[in-house]
Amino acid sequence: CKPMSYEEKRQLSLDINKLPGEKLGRVVHIIQSREPSLKNSNPDEIEIDFETLKPSTLRELERYVTS
């Protein structure tokens, strides 16, 4: 899986911020299912740190927000 450039992460962040509330739950689910360290975090307060997410997680999020 190809790592994301800074610009791609920035765009992904903007795209996620534009999602309606009902789609954000899926974003949280994708992150929690792929990032063991965030599995028990509160979905309402999850802070997405794009620098610490795996490339595969970032690509999955990218696919979701652009679908």
Score class of each variant (00 low, 15 high):
Pro3Asn: 05
Glu60Gln: 06
Pro20Thr: 13
Phe50Tyr: 13
Lys9Val: 10
Leu38Met: 11
Ile30Arg: 02
Glu47Tyr: 03
Arg63Val: 08
Glu8Tyr: 00
Leu24Asn: 03
Lys18Ile: 00
Ser67Cys: 09
Asp15Leu: 15
Glu35Tyr: 07
Lys54Pro: 04
Arg10Trp: 02
Ser33Val: 03
Ile46Gln: 13
Ile48His: 02
Phe50Met: 13
Thr57Trp: 01
Leu24Cys: 02
Met4Leu: 12
Val27Trp: 01
Glu62Arg: 15
Leu53Trp: 00
Gly21Arg: 15
Asp15Lys: 14
Arg63Asp: 10
Glu62Met: 02
Leu38Glu: 06
Pro3Thr: 06
Leu58Thr: 08
Glu7Cys: 04
Asn17Ile: 02
Asp44Cys: 06
Pro43Trp: 15
Cys1Leu: 09
Leu19Val: 03
Thr52Gly: 11
Ser41Asp: 13
Ser56Gly: 11
Thr52Gln: 13
Ser33Leu: 07
Glu35Arg: 01
Ile31Leu: 10
Arg63Phe: 09
Glu22Lys: 10
Arg10Leu: 07
Ile16Gln: 00
Lys23Thr: 13
Arg34Leu: 14
Cys1Arg: 10
Lys54Ala: 12
Ser41Val: 14
Arg59Ile: 01
Lys18Asp: 05
Glu60Asp: 09
Leu38Ala: 05
Asp15Gly: 11
Arg63Tyr: 07
Ser56Ala: 09
Ser5Asp: 06
Ser5Ala: 00
Glu62Lys: 11
Leu58Ala: 05
Tyr6Val: 08
Tyr64His: 07
Pro36Thr: 05
Arg26Ser: 08
Thr66His: 15
Ser13Trp: 05
Ser41Glu: 14
Glu60Ile: 02
Glu51Asn: 13
Glu7Gly: 06
Asp49Cys: 09
Leu14Cys: 10
Ser56Glu: 12
Ser13Ile: 09
Tyr6Asn: 14
Val28Pro: 05
Asn40Ala: 12
Arg26Asp: 15
Ile46Trp: 08
Lys9Ser: 01
Pro43Leu: 12
Glu35Lys: 00
Ser13Gln: 14
Ser67Val: 04
Lys9Asp: 00
Pro36Ala: 09
Pro36Glu: 13
Glu8His: 02
Pro3Val: 03
Leu61Trp: 05
Ser13Tyr: 05
Ser37Met: 08
Glu62Ile: 01
Glu60Leu: 05
Glu45Met: 06
Ser56Tyr: 01
Leu12Ile: 05
His29Asn: 15
Val27Ile: 12
Lys23Val: 13
Leu19Ile: 05
Ile46His: 09
His29Leu: 04
Tyr6Phe: 13
Asp44Gln: 13
Asp49His: 07
Pro3Phe: 02
Gln32Ile: 05
Val28Glu: 08
Val28Gln: 15
Ile46Pro: 07
Tyr64Ser: 06
Lys2Arg: 12
Asn42Gln: 11
Arg34Trp: 04
Pro20Tyr: 09
Ser67Gly: 14
Glu8Trp: 00
Thr66Leu: 09
Ile48Asn: 07
Glu7Leu: 05
Leu24Ala: 09
Glu35Ser: 03
Glu62Pro: 09
Lys18Met: 03
Pro43Gly: 10
Val27Arg: 02
Glu22Gly: 08
Ser67Phe: 06
Gln11Glu: 11
Gly21Trp: 08
Ser13Thr: 09
Pro3Leu: 05
Leu61Asp: 08
Ile16Thr: 04
Ile48Leu: 12
Thr57Lys: 00
Met4Phe: 03
Glu60Gly: 07
Leu19Thr: 01
Gly25Tyr: 08
Val28Ser: 13
Gln11Asn: 10
Asp49Thr: 07
Pro3His: 03
Arg34Met: 15
Ile48Val: 11
Met4Thr: 01
Glu35Thr: 01
Phe50Cys: 10
Glu35Asp: 06
Ser41Asn: 11
Tyr64Asn: 10
Ser41His: 13
Lys9Glu: 11
Gln11Phe: 05
Thr66Met: 10
Thr57Tyr: 01
Tyr6Asp: 15
Ile48Gly: 01
Pro43Phe: 12
Thr52Arg: 15
His29Phe: 05
Glu60Thr: 04
Glu45Asn: 10
Thr52Ser: 12
Lys39Tyr: 09
Glu51Gln: 07
Glu47Lys: 12
Lys54Gln: 15
Leu14Phe: 11
Pro36Leu: 05
Thr52Cys: 04
Ile16Lys: 02
Tyr64Met: 00
Asn42Pro: 13
Asn42Trp: 08
Phe50Lys: 02
Phe50Thr: 11
Asp15Phe: 11
Leu38Asp: 04
Pro20Cys: 13
Ser33Asn: 09
Ser41Lys: 14
Ile30Gln: 03
Val65Asp: 06
Ser37Pro: 06
Glu8Ala: 04
Val27Tyr: 00
Gly25Arg: 15
Glu60Pro: 03
Glu51Leu: 02
Glu47Ala: 14
Asp15Ala: 15
Glu7Asn: 05
Lys2Trp: 07
Pro3Cys: 00
Lys2Asp: 11
Val28Phe: 14
Val27Met: 08
Leu24Ile: 09
Thr52Ala: 12
Thr66Tyr: 15
Pro36Arg: 08
Pro43His: 09
Ile31Arg: 02
Pro20Leu: 04
Met4Ile: 04
Lys9Tyr: 00
Arg10Glu: 05
Asp49Phe: 02
Gln32Asn: 13
Val65His: 05
Met4Gly: 02
Glu8Asn: 06
Asn42Gly: 09
Lys2Thr: 04
Gly25Ser: 15
Asn40Cys: 10
Ser56Trp: 04
Asp44Phe: 08
Ser41Met: 15
Ile16Phe: 02
Thr66Val: 10
Gln11Ile: 05
Leu14Lys: 12
Ser67Ala: 14
Ile30Leu: 11
Leu24Tyr: 15
Asp49Met: 08
Pro20Asn: 14
Ile16Glu: 03
Gly25Thr: 14
Asp15Trp: 11
Cys1Thr: 08
Pro43Tyr: 10
Ile16Pro: 03
Lys39His: 10
Lys23Ala: 15
Thr66Ala: 14
Ser37Ile: 04
Ile31Tyr: 01
Val65Cys: 08
Ile16Tyr: 01
Leu19Glu: 03
Lys2Glu: 13
Gly25Asp: 12
Glu45His: 15
Arg10Tyr: 05
Val27His: 03
Leu24Met: 14
Ser5Gly: 05
Pro55Ser: 08
His29Glu: 15
Gly25Val: 11
Ser37Asp: 13
Ser33Cys: 09
Val65Pro: 05
Gln32Cys: 07
Pro55Met: 06
Asn40His: 12
Asp44Ala: 08
Leu24Arg: 15
Arg63Asn: 11
Arg26Thr: 13
Phe50Asp: 08
Lys39Asn: 12
Glu47Ile: 08
His29Lys: 12
Asn17Gln: 09
Arg59Gly: 01
Ser56Asp: 11
Val28His: 14
Arg63Met: 10
Lys2Ser: 07
Thr57Val: 01
Ser5Met: 00
Ser56Asn: 12
Met4Pro: 01
Asp44Asn: 11
Lys39Thr: 11
Thr52Trp: 01
Asp49Ala: 04
Arg59Pro: 05
Gly21Gln: 15
Asn42Glu: 13
Glu45Tyr: 05
Glu22Cys: 11
Ser13Lys: 14
Ser33Met: 11
Glu45Pro: 12
Gly21Ser: 14
Val28Met: 15
Lys9Thr: 04
Lys23Asp: 15
Glu60Ser: 08
Arg10Ile: 07
Tyr6Thr: 14
Ile31His: 03
His29Gln: 15
Arg59Phe: 03
Ile31Pro: 01
Lys39Cys: 10
Ser33Ile: 01
Val27Cys: 05
Asp15His: 10
Met4Tyr: 01
Glu47Pro: 07
Glu47Cys: 10
Val65Glu: 10
Thr57Arg: 01
Ile31Val: 11
Lys2Ile: 01
Ser67His: 10
Val28Asp: 03
Asn40Glu: 06
Pro36Asp: 13
Ile30Thr: 06
Arg59Asp: 05
Asn42Leu: 12
Pro3Gly: 06
Lys54Ile: 03
Leu58Glu: 05
His29Ile: 00
Pro3Arg: 07
Val28Asn: 08
Asn40Lys: 11
Tyr6Cys: 13
Leu61His: 07
Asn40Asp: 14
Glu35Gln: 02
Asp15Met: 15
Pro55Lys: 06
Glu45Ile: 11
Val65Ile: 09
Leu53Ile: 02
His29Ala: 13
Glu45Ala: 09
Thr52His: 06
Asp49Trp: 00
Asn17Ala: 09
Gly21Asn: 12
Arg26Leu: 04
Gln32Ser: 05
Val65Thr: 09
Ser67Asn: 11
Gln11Cys: 07
Lys2Tyr: 05
Thr66Ser: 14
His29Arg: 14
Leu19Gln: 00
Gln11Pro: 00
Lys2His: 10
Ile48Ser: 06
Ser33Gly: 07
Pro20Gln: 14
Asp49Lys: 09
Tyr6Gln: 14
Leu58Val: 06
Asp15Arg: 13
Glu47Asp: 12
Asn42Ala: 11
Leu24Pro: 01
Ile48Phe: 12
Glu51Val: 02
Pro36Met: 06
Tyr6Lys: 15
Arg59Ala: 02
Asp44Tyr: 07
Asp49Gly: 01
Asn40Arg: 11
Thr57His: 01
Leu53Tyr: 07
Tyr64Ala: 06
Pro55Leu: 08
Arg34Ser: 10
Leu38Ser: 04
Glu35Met: 00
Glu45Trp: 03
Gln32His: 03
Pro55Thr: 12
Pro43Lys: 06
Pro20Phe: 09
Asp44Ser: 14
Ile30Lys: 00
Leu24Ser: 06
Ser13Arg: 15
Glu51Ser: 07
Ser67Thr: 13
Pro36His: 07
Pro20His: 10
Arg10Lys: 09
Arg59Tyr: 07
Asp44Leu: 07
Arg63Gly: 11
Ile48Asp: 01
Ser37Glu: 13
Arg59Gln: 01
Leu19Asn: 03
Ile48Met: 07
Pro36Gln: 07
Ile46Ser: 12
Lys2Asn: 13
Ile46Lys: 11
Cys1Phe: 09
Arg63Ile: 04
Ser37Arg: 12
Arg10Gln: 08
Arg10Phe: 02
Ser41Ile: 12
Leu14Arg: 12
Gly25Ile: 09
Ile46Asp: 11
Cys1Met: 05
Lys9Leu: 11
Cys1Gly: 12
